[in-house]
Amino acid sequence: MYIVESIKKVDKYFGIVGITIGNFEGFHRGHQKILRTLKDGCKKRGLKSAVLTFKTHPLKIIRGFEPERLWSHNDKIKTFIGEGIDFLICIDFTLSFADTTAENFIEDLAHKVNPKFICLGEEFRFGRGNAGSVGLVEKYSNIFEYDFIKVRDELFDGDAISSTRIRQAIKSGDIKSASKMLGRNYSFYLKLVDMEYFEPFLSNQALPHRGQFIGMLLLPHTGVKAKARVLFPERRIEIIKNKAGRFNPINIGAPEQTLFSFEFSS
């Protein structure tokens, strides 16, 4: 996957890509549907696939706060690599960028990337004051000669899946619903403290406010894991069962410096 950090002309991809745009926080089932549409559309048209996304959440710049995270920035990059995306435009969301009009954004994208296919979620908004909609992108398709597909929302319990709904479910302790909306078991990175307690690796990770939850504690990249219980708000962790006796955090050098992953059972 070829990665750039600004919207700029890249000769080997100029005029031969299909693109989607978004923050893709958590990469839930709605995001997955958009990427499937992108890849299918690119394959049919003989195009390379491209994604434009952001290093930081737009709300952190626009309103001064960042919603609780559902995954790390590295997870986002790894996911796009795993999905087989060819070209990633990963930019800083700045006040200057936020002040760009919707019309100027489309024109800039057309002049620097010249996509021949664009697909976006139906609720996608962009440009100064969120004035731009998918209707505007579709309108400009005739001017800049690209195909456009609007991707319908993916639903759960009758309503559109969103990162906001998933955060709310997690914080209320409804991990089952959160995992169903994500399309996978929810997980987070942690570091052990005194072998009994943990600190989340991401300071603003979305986590349950209270309750006890069963899952798997994993040492990434090793396959070593153990069944464990986490308790909130205490942030306490209890090892329940080691797989074949292989996993014992005490035997891992400097566990307080080791990054573990906890995957909730759904």
Rank of each mutant, 00 (worst) to 15 (best):
K225H: 08
N104F: 05
N142S: 14
S162Y: 05
H111C: 10
T100L: 13
L38R: 00
E122T: 05
L190G: 01
V134H: 06
I239E: 12
K139H: 13
F156L: 09
I21V: 15
I89V: 14
N104I: 10
F264D: 13
K39E: 06
V51C: 00
W71I: 03
E196P: 00
I77D: 14
F262H: 08
C42L: 09
P67G: 09
D147Q: 01
G183D: 09
Q257K: 14
M195R: 07
I61V: 15
R235N: 15
L109D: 02
F264C: 07
K139N: 11
H31G: 11
A254E: 11
Q212T: 03
G253C: 09
H31W: 11
S261T: 12
P115D: 02
G18V: 03
H28S: 01
E138S: 06
F156R: 07
Q32V: 12
T79A: 10
S172F: 03
G18P: 08
I239W: 01
V151R: 00
L190K: 01
R184P: 02
P233K: 08
I149F: 06
I175P: 08
R235Y: 15
R36G: 06
G129I: 07
S265E: 15
I91F: 06
G135S: 05
A160K: 12
S49M: 09
R45Q: 06
S49R: 05
D147L: 01
R125C: 04
I240M: 15
Y140L: 11
E5V: 05
R229S: 09
D108L: 15
K191L: 13
F105P: 02
A206N: 10
R210E: 15
A178T: 10
K227A: 13
E263V: 10
G26T: 00
A131D: 15
S49C: 08
E199A: 09
A244Y: 09
A244S: 14
R236N: 15
W71H: 10
L70Q: 04
E122H: 08
L217G: 10
G22R: 05
G22H: 01
L202Q: 11
L192S: 04
F80Q: 06
G121H: 01
T100N: 06
L38P: 08
E199Q: 11
L109T: 05
S203Q: 14
V224A: 12
L207I: 03
N142H: 14
K55V: 03
E238A: 12
K39H: 07
I118F: 12
S203Y: 13
F213C: 04
F14T: 03
R246P: 02
S163I: 10
N114Q: 12
K180N: 13
G132E: 02
A228P: 06
K150D: 04
M216F: 10
